[in-house]
Design a binder for these strands. Structure first.
Length: 248
RNA sequence: GCACUGCUUGA
């Protein structure tokens, strides 16, 4: 069963949905037992369909799992919540969170992060912040993913003071910004033409022991080129090897 | 043991 699961999931990741479905059918006819993972992967197949009713089939799968087993677990719920959030169906995503709690299934960081990302991608930053405050007040330990999603949204919205204050209290709250956190911040600064500040963050990154990665480099290039600072871009490109960066 | 979360440009 685990081998089938791994195979089917790889096919999904490679966008070979038809092959994934076919392989899932083989699993069904093999007589091997289906696990929660198997059905979570099947849920992903349903959700990757382009049909308008893909969520209806997802809901009915979830119902059947609740009724007959194997029962959904946190990954199953998070998978569905993530898909709903990405589709902008936040209200329904929260409905699944309620269902999850009703069934005594404990949410994970991925569960919450998917919901926060859903809010942020709809531009509902206030709601996202409110939700973060809420789960923290329930003792949920903040993680880097969660704050990076928030900082991404705030940065795209130009709310840099807010970003600074979130970063300022990160140590106290028990999380550390990573390279992606700085990347999203720098990306927002670049889009807002605050190029100087973006470059200063490079030093901050390195002081915190973080190595700028390929995305960092591309963010800075894009920003310099947009601002017709081609000369500076060329200079940076020339220096990239001595900074141990590897443009692709 | 296998399944769920964040960043750049390009259509």
């Amino acid at each position: 069963t685990a081998s089938y699961n791994a195979l089917i999931n790889s096919l999904i990741l490679a966008n070979h949905t038809a092959a994934a479905s076919a392989t899932f059918s083989s699993l069904l006819s093999s007589g091997l037992p289906l696990t929660t993972s198997s059905l979570t992967i099947f849920l992903k197949i349903l959700l990757s369909s382009t049909r308008a009713n893909r969520f209806d089939s997802a809901y009915s799968l979830l119902d059947k799992m609740l009724q007959y087993g194997p029962p959904p677990d946190a990954v199953t719920y998070s998978t569905l919540i993530g898909a709903l959030s990405r589709a902008g169906r936040i209200k329904e995503a929260f409905g699944i969170l309620d269902l999850m709690l009703d069934n005594k299934c404990c949410p994970t960081p991925q569960t919450y992060n998917s919901l926060i990302l859903g809010y942020c991608s709809q531009g509902k930053i206030k709601e996202a912040k409110h939700f973060v405050a809420l789960i923290e007040s329930y003792g949920f330990a903040p993680d880097t993913f969660m704050y990076t999603v928030l900082i991404d949204a705030l940065s795209r919205n130009g709310e840099f003071d807010e970003v600074e204050s979130i970063l300022g209290e990160s140590q106290v709250k028990g999380w550390k910004p990573d390279e992606v956190t700085y990347n999203v911040y720098m990306n927002g600064l670049c889009k807002a033409r605050r190029i100087d500040k973006a470059f200063r963050l490079l030093d901050t990154m390195r002081c915190n022991g973080l190595v700028p990665n390929l995305d960092t480099l591309n963010i800075l290039f894009d920003c310099l080129c947009r601002d017709s600072m081609l000369q500076e871009a060329m200079d940076l490109f020339g220096k990239s090897s001595e900074l141990d960066w590897f443009p692709d």
